[in-house]
Design a binder for these strands. Structure first.
Length: 830
RNA sequence: GCCCUCGUAGCCCAAUGGCAGAGGCAGAGGACUUAAAAUCCUCCAAGUGUGGGUUCGACCCCCACCGAGGGCACCA
């Protein structure tokens, strides 16, 4: 470093690159964030960031998320907690596999290389992770327990195989999860997704629908409302009744589900989902069969995109058969249509066109009768074309006449149950979770298919069923799992009868991995079990979870489901895995997502190079509330650099010795320091990190002023303030804070300095300004003691000359006093 | 169409129902400097999307509307 350069640094601030390199090895040595010491007496806290896919180096989104999680973890360390803040990799899955195919290398090598890159970047980004607990979901040692879990569910009937229509991308030649279908298109190649009937593995999450819904009361106020609402929508519970309808010429009745059993007398026709088995059966042998087949073909050709158009005209075919309305014996014509879904309810409905908009549209298209049975006071749907759904007295409804909607539902449900014609029922939008994937890079499903024994669990002692080497397998998607070609791997004797059998060749959805990974961190070195009861009871549930809202439904719902299953198995003592949840926003550029095609991609490595780690972390955290998007066009990393230098310079100005008696310091700066500490603590605990930083900025300004034109650099209060600044800054700008701490004469690490205790007596000001209002308008400000009583404050206010003047000739109606802040005098001016 | 969240200086954002401004960005002026950069100081601006209501008092609570973002969407 030249002499000129060194002199410049004295003015400009510290050498960011040098300081970053200086502290990393020191921190490696001190390891301030280890949580595994058995004799650690500190109370425990589990702070968890959602783990990443290793699909490349870290990007701006990671930088934001991990900066936020770090503030929380580092804060609780400073507050004296034994914080476990672990990190690992969600390393299986399509992104990794596709990248590996594109580059023609083994996904194993590609994945572990990326993990190494990301891990090194996290270290340089000064993430406070406890690296002793790390693991990757593609480690056989991890997915072994994935397979164990699968078998636990299989034993309990919660994992099962069924044939069903699944999302299929004809271009990628693979099934897609629901979340990979965006507006009817494949998320990767934008090809319209079709349906294909395949036999696949499912987890029976629907068994837990009610508990997933009801246990949300534990999360109220601790998770974002938005996420809870989204989960409620997704589960989609509705209440109504199942009702049996006899079908002419069929011995068995058909069950329908309705949310409006009160409108049974208003049913004028019956509709069966076109793609259901029931429709095919009912159509068979009727004169309408040919037309029916034609219709089903046409429906199949229509893609999901067409189906999703809400204003699409209703279509259907009359089967020339009839259902019998159980309440009045009326013959209802049976139609098939694609507006009834085969996989919701029973795939068949009673149509009440007067009180259901979709039924009304169908009735009008097919010229079917409309009968009003609830007098809601609205106009006749026959005329308006708008179905009525409000409450009112029932009409045209036999014994229900005159009753309200609610009474009628209760009455008819009881009636149906008594007559064996139906009963109250619930339905859910939530479907069982399809976990099979016809891809290579995932956890092999530990089932062996035997011609005579059927589906046989792989014996536990044979786990893990490891993936066969990728070399020699064609990983390109072709509709069946690449594992099928690994003949040596596939062909095994049946564990039950010893006859030749075959392994299941599908792999599991990677959401299985992430549904319980948080249970593994406390037991990550335990090779005898997925997680130990002792470690889990010590650390879980997760006190604070941090991640993007993109996982609002799937990952979080699945994790809640697994937790409940494991609770039922007696493996866990809690039913909700994440006590508190913070959703961070995204990092965007000029209002829209950053993308290569738009050319507005901001590279994290460039930003770090330009401004340094601390300034980027600070910019992320200071930009606004954490759940808001960070618009990189709106933030000023160079402003952050300026502020950090400003704070750093204070540490060079302090001229008192370490461990000086702070109580002898200048009082007004001490008040500012303790108020900043108090306010920053409160702000951090309520996730208002931007506000916490604003408080630190204020304190930096106050300290600067004290040094330059106040008590001077030797006053103990200046040291107290600067040390408090270093400690508060350590949450977000660890390099700057450590450098300050050293210049203040302390040994590293500032991360373990401990949050200064707050002197409450300094938080109570000696005098405060009270406001005197007349009719809500401010008339005067007076200085009073913060301890003044209501009566005294009122007396002082009335004695004030300005106030007395204003009150001349007016009648005082009322005086509201809130000591020591405000007096409001309500007058009636003539 | 239904549900959720949000509208405060030019911009990002603060304000337990009690003085609308904490902090930052941008801008203006000044000090220092031969000059510039850096630094330090000072200043600037909105009456809270619109219209009602509750209240002694509303950015805050309630209703309606406008606008932005997000979620769900033929779920019987």
């Amino acid at each position: 470093m030249s002499a000129d350069h060194a002199r410049d640094l004295v003015h400009e601030g510290y050498d960011v690159a040098y300081v970053q390199e200086k502290w990393l090895p020191v921190w490696d040595e001190i390891a301030p964030f280890k949580s595994g010491r058995p004799d650690d007496p500190r109370p425990k806290k589990y702070v968890l960031d959602m783990f990443p896919y290793p699909s490349g180096d870290l990007h701006m989104g990671h930088a934001e998320a991990y900066a936020l999680g770090d503030v929380i973890a580092r804060y609780w360390v400073q507050r004296g907690f034994n914080v476990m803040h672990p990190m690992g990799w969600d390393a299986f899955g399509l992104p990794a596999e596709n990248a590996a195919i594109k580059r023609n290398i083994d996904p194993t090598i590609w994945t572990y290389e990326n993990i190494a890159v990301q891990k090194a970047s996290m270290r340089r980004y000064a993430c406070s992770f406890d690296w002793d607990r790390t693991f990757n979901t593609c480690d056989p040692e991890f997915y072994r327990w994935n397979q164990w879990l699968f078998l636990q569910l299989f034993e309990r009937g919660l994992a099962y195989r069924k044939a069903s229509k699944v999302n299929w991308c004809p271009s990628c030649q693979t099934v897609l999860a629901n979340e990979q279908v965006i507006a009817g298109l494949c998320e990767r190649c934008d090809t319209p997704v079709t349906k294909k009937k395949l036999t696949q593995w499912y987890f029976k999450i629907t068994d837990y629908a009610d508990r997933l819904l009801e246990d949300m009361s534990q999360l109220e106020g601790k998770w974002p409302d938005k996420v809870l609402t989204m989960q409620r929508n997704w589960i989609g519970r509705s209440t109504g009744a199942n009702v049996l309808f006899q079908i002419e010429g069929r011995s068995e009745p058909v069950t329908i589900y309705t949310t409006r059993p009160d409108t049974l007398y208003g049913a004028t026709f019956f509709v069966v989902a076109a793609d259901s088995d029931l429709a095919a059966e009912l159509a068979k042998g009727t004169p309408a069969e040919a037309k029916f087949n034609e219709y089903v073909e046409a429906t199949k050709a229509a893609s999901d995109i067409d189906r999703m158009a809400t204003d699409r005209p209703k279509t259907g075919v009359f089967l020339e058969r009839y259902a019998i309305n159980p309440v009045n014996g009326e013959k209802l014509p049976i139609w098939v249509s694609d507006y009834v879904l085969a996989d919701y309810g029973t795939g068949a409905i009673m149509a009440v066109p007067a009180h259901d908009q979709r039924d009304l549209e169908f009735a009008r298209a097919m010229d079917l009768p409309v009968r009003v049975v609830v007098d809601t006071g609205e106009e006749d749907p026959n005329i308006t074309g708008i179905a009525t759904s409000g409450d009112g007295a029932l009409i045209n409804s036999g014994s229900l006449n005159g009753k309200s909607k609610g009474d009628a539902i209760a009455f008819i449900n009881a009636q149906l149950e008594k007559d064996g014609l139906g009963k109250a029922a619930r339905n859910y939008r939530l479907r069982d979770w399809l976990i099979s994937r016809q891809r290579y890079w995932g956890t092999p499903i530990p089932i062996i298919h035997c011609p005579s024994c059927g589906e046989v669990a792989t014996p536990l002692e044979e786990l893990p069923v490891t993936l066969p080497p990728a070399a020699g397998l064609d990983l390109k998607p072709k509709g069946t799992s690449p594992l099928g070609a690994a003949t040596d791997w596939v062909n095994v004797p049946c564990p039950k009868c010893g006859q030749p059998a075959k392994r299941d060749t599908d792999t599991m959805d990677t959401f299985v991995d992430s549904s319980w990974y948080f249970l593994r961190f406390p037991s990550s070195t335990d090779h005898a079990q997925a997680f130990s009861r002792e470690a889990t009871d010590t650390w879980l549930p997760v006190d604070q979870y941090v991640g993007g809202v993109t996982h609002a439904i799937l990952h979080l719902l699945y994790s809640r489901f697994f937790t409940k299953v494991l609770f039922d198995m007696g493996k866990l003592s809690f039913t909700e895995p994440f006590t508190r949840l913070l959703n961070q926003g995204m990092v965007v550029m000029e209002g829209s997502a950053m993308s290569k095609s738009r050319g507005n991609l901001v590279r994290l490595s460039d930003e770090l190079e330009k401004h340094g780690v601390d300034a980027i972390r600070l910019s992320m955290v200071f930009s606004g509330p954490p759940e808001d998007d960070v618009d990189w066009a709106d933030v000023s990393p160079s402003g952050s650099v300026k502020f950090l230098n400003r704070a750093w310079r204070l540490s060079g100005d302090v001229s008192s010795a370490p461990r000086v008696d702070f109580t002898k310091g200048e009082r007004s700066l001490r008040i500012a320091t303790h108020k900043a500490l108090h306010d920053a603590s409160f702000a951090v605990e309520s996730f208002r990190f931007n506000v916490a930083i604003a408080r630190v900025m204020e304190l930096v300004n106050a300290t600067r002023k004290a040094i330059d034109s106040g008590c001077g650099p030797a006053d103990p209060a200046v040291r107290e303030a600067t040390e408090a600044i270093a400690i508060m800054l350590s949450l977000v700008a660890p390099f700057t804070a450590e450098e300050m701490w050293e210049r203040l004469g302390h040994k590293p690490s500032v991360a373990l300095a401990g949050w200064p205790s707050i002197d409450e007596s300094l938080l109570v000001a000696e005098a405060v300004v009270a406001v005197i209002q007349i009719n809500g308008k401010i008339k005067e400000r007076i200085e009073v003691s913060p301890l003044i009583s209501d009566a005294d404050l009122e007396a002082v206010a009335l004695a004030n000359p300005v106030v007395a003047q204003a009150l001349l000739g007016a009648t005082v109606i009322k005086i509201i006093t809130r000591a020591p802040k405000i007096v409001n005098i309500v007058i009636n001016n003539a």
